[in-house]
Design a protein around this nucleic acid. Structure first.
Lengths: 271, 271
DNA sequence: AATTGCCCTATTGTCCGACAGTCCGGTTTT
DNA sequence: AAAACCGGACTGTCGGACAATAGGGCAATT
């Protein structure tokens, strides 16, 4: 167990070196050689594992081998494995159940993906209208689908959420979350995971400024309550057109609210 | 070395045990204590940096301090910093320009976000119809927006791409990429970053199976060519309704293609 | 029998220290 | 001035260490 390490270090072909000077003697505009891809070991390790996960050789819930064992299998140092694991962890492909030692393979949750998208939106200084526009595209259709596919349980959940919103006190900072939940449940009722994923990012991105809006515009609460009620009725009656129509109004109202609140539609969304 | 552990074990409040029996004598279902949050240092470091980036104290293009310096500032070991950096790297918040030493702050590219979403879709075994349904929701509207907002350059790009597709040889494995490019450019023309992000994931997710479909169904190529032509005309004329209509047909055709190719709509999309 | 206390082992989180390979900017040589 | 050279600053990776803890097993206790 002592000499193994030496052997490895000697075997390992100090990765770089012969690559940098190649381009010097290429003919002209069209280069003769493609830049050689030099990727650090931690990337190699992480993509190896990632591949196993995506190809479902490792399935959701499987326990990953211990770091040391991985290190031995890949013939790299444990630190290297750990760096790889951090990549996968932040991608949501592996996770550690609270208070567990080993990592398990997991599929990225909607919230995780959404937050990645939210980061992108924030950093690209996407404006409120852009998000709103996307909502105008997606939400009404989702509502329509939900109306067609909802189960009794979906309906109950929606009703309860709407109830909760109606009863939430005036300045309750939690109100927005309830509104978000309503959207989320509608997504769930649409039985389309893809749309749910896309939607969630939007609501997440919008939430902070929406909160301010609701607190500023007095009519906001009643308008939201009203829209929710209409949507619920449409969903209950499996009336896709109505659902679409009211969701459309509902989302459109958001923009109105922003205008009334004096928030410019071009304000970039923020954290 | 023997009694140290004893002391520790005694001090440590055996977390799990305490929780499980708490509900026994508590008033009812709600447990009395929240689980204490224990997060490793690498997470703390990475969220500290993440926060600085999202709040734009660190802006796109800024060079991060060297690992050693970060380690000193955070008072942790360099390895710990590196683990944190890997997290940020895989989130796309920092990146290293090819052949550069220091890391720079960057905003997650559309492709990055899209691939995160694609992972999620694959692992959740989302079926082809789900993706297709989402496309049916998004793409026509994007086309409509594109028609309204396209510039001359957008139009040129679209035309060129469509041209490229028409000229691509029969079994060319690159054909799908050209189709994808067409969608992407249309997204760009819509001037809505949010929709672009959402779209891209869908096209990415669909691409592999789409490739098979195109190769299997003989009529596919002409139908695609035709649809593209119509869409381009509509976009040229700034005719939103026509653009929407033809994009709708175009996407619907995909499903038809799958049916003809004998691919079940419930096939989960794969890598 | 169920609970509690104690110990051991496998593993993780973190740290130290080291070194080769490479990038970069300045210096010397041609 | 262009080319070759050089030393410092960093990164990538490694070897090695150690404390803390999750998980089990075993024994003492209720």
């Amino acid at each position: 167990m002592v000499m193994k390490k030496k052997t490895i270090a000697a075997t390992r072909p100090r990765r770089t070196g012969a690559e940098t000077q190649a381009p010097a003697e290429s003919s002209d505009a069209a280069s003769m050689f493609d830049p050689v891809e030099r990727s650090p070991a931690y990337t190699k390790v992480s993509s190896a594992i990632e591949h196993k996960i995506l190809s479902r050789a490792l399935r959701d819930g499987d326990v990953l081998p211990a770091e040391l064992e991985l290190a031995q299998q890949f013939r790299v140092h444990r630190s290297t494995v750990r760096e790889a694991l951090r990549q996968l962890e932040s991608a949501g492909l592996v996770a550690r159940p609270p208070g567990a030692k080993r990592m398990i393979v997991s599929r990225p949750e909607a919230a995780k993906v959404a937050s990645g998208m939210r980061h992108a939106l924030v950093l690209h200084e996407v404006s409120f209208v852009d998000v709103w526009e996307a909502m105008m595209v997606i939400e009404p259709e989702v509502a329509a689908l939900a109306a067609l596919r909802r189960t009794q349980a979906d309906l109950a959940a929606l009703t309860q959420t709407s109830e909760a919103f109606r009863e939430s006190p005036e300045g309750d900072p939690d109100s927005v979350n309830i509104v978000a939940t309503f959207f989320e449940q509608l997504g769930a009722a649409s039985r389309n995971q893809v749309l749910v994923l896309a939607k969630q990012s939007l609501t997440q991105a919008l939430a902070p400024s929406l909160a301010r809006m609701i607190d500023t515009v007095p009519q906001a609460r009643t308008r939201i309550t009203d829209a929710q009620r209409r949507i619920i009725v449409a969903v209950r009656d499996k009336n896709a057109d109505e659902a679409r129509k009211w969701m459309s109004k509902h989302v459109r109202d958001f923009k109105r609210g922003y205008e009334v609140a004096g928030i410019s539609p071009d304000t970039p969304i923020s954290v």
